[in-house]
Design a protein around this nucleic acid. Structure first.
Lengths: 221, 221
DNA sequence: CGACATGTTGAACCTCATCAACCGACGTGG
DNA sequence: CCACGTCGGTTGATGAGGTTCAACATGTCG
């Protein structure tokens, strides 16, 4: 993205802080903005009429929130942690997208990535066991922590990070119950695949072992 | 899409017939074409190293097969029934997309729809019970049959159609076993929500009852 | 007709959900 | 300052929904 675009974006942008647990968009109301995640974690959720819930996506910085070509989001978004976002009014943003094809391309790319992630998750939801699910989630977070921390700041093959979700959110993400999440975490702990410093701080001594517990061959990034 | 575009598309297109069960693209080989589905059903699958499989998408006419901006498909595609597709070599197609922004927009739209569908399915995979899953699948097919049949050719609120998948594929789509699929079908049959003429021919006397069995309020299209 | 694929049905087992009790941390009001 | 409720999390006992294993039915094709 060149300087001109960045400038124009900044002109229409508006920063916003949101407390953990606060709703950001609802599946029942039209949405009139797009947003960039600056910090924190946002969960996208779907809910059955009787209240059963599923988290269908997680957004971290520098992810993008918003649905092109439609005001009707088929899901809700809620701050999972305290969140900072940078919003753009739909109208202005869409005009900008029209002017800069490169921007549309980026949005498209991003959507393709989200689709890939969603399909990966379908495999997890449908075919993995509870322990594999929890391990997969931890593995995903561990890799994310390595990326955001820049180059490795610890032993290679190891990782340490803070969970961005409560047990309840993890359960909704993995289609489990909080109890099962808790049990599987202690299982992974007692088998020395992970170490739990506090409830939220995770230490992974050997990423390959975690990947194996997750059911995916250790190879893939 | 205007006439010029259609003409250009036809120039680079190439028709192809594929027998049920034949692979179309593999997650291990790069893909060098895009395709339109003319007839039949294509399943997109993901597989765990140990063989557990999940269908992450179904394509029918006039759906689109192919991944923009990347040669590496993270999934495999296989003909679920006998299939007819219309392929376009990647190079020529991408050049065309570059020339006609409207075409890119359409691809984008299509990807957004796929993403919505994937997330809907995540809710189903994670939170629905076996009977709701099977009913949801049938409901989806029933609505599709109504759309493709044009205006209603039978009693309003009813539908009849042929299943495009074997029990085994349905199981892989819903994350169940063939046995469970079979049992739930007979349950729905004995409770008169559906009628099974042959193994593949389904009759739905009351779509609302089916929608209810699917766990979604009857309202939505 | 036999062989093979597809589908159904039954019985036993297992994973995970459910219900319930408990713990520690935190904040609030008396 | 302490009792209290609340929230997030852990642990245990029990049971149900689905898987697994196995037998059987049905249909199709050479």
């Amino acid at each position: 993205m060149d300087d001109v675009q960045v400038k124009k974006l900044e002109q229409i942008a508006h920063r916003k802080k949101i407390r953990a647990g606060q709703p950001i968009i609802s599946d029942e109301e039209p949405v009139d903005f797009f947003a960039n995640v600056i910090s924190g974690a946002i969960k996208l959720t779907k809910t059955l009429p009787d209240g059963r819930q599923q988290i269908v996506g997680l957004l971290f910085a520098p992810d993008f929130l918003g649905r092109a070509y439609s005001k009707n989001n088929p899901y809700s978004a809620e701050a999972a942690t305290d969140v900072e976002i940078c919003t753009f009014p739909s109208v202005a943003f869409e005009r900008l997208v029209g002017e800069y094809p490169g921007l549309q391309r980026r949005l498209f790319q991003h959507t393709l990535d989200e689709l890939d992630a969603a399909r990966d998750w379908m495999l997890l939801l449908g075919r993995k066991k509870a322990e594999e699910k929890v391990a997969s989630f931890l593995y995903m977070q561990a890799r994310r922590s390595l990326l955001t921390a820049g180059v490795h700041k610890g032993t290679p093959g190891a990782a340490a990070f803070e969970l961005p979700l409560t047990r309840s959110d993890i359960a909704d993400y993995l289609s489990l119950t909080i109890e099962t999440v808790s049990r599987q975490l202690t299982r992974l702990k007692t088998s020395n695949v992970i170490r739990l410093n506090t409830n939220r701080l995770i230490m992974v001594p050997d990423l390959n072992r975690l990947a194996q517990a997750a059911g995916q061959e250790s190879g893939r990034i």
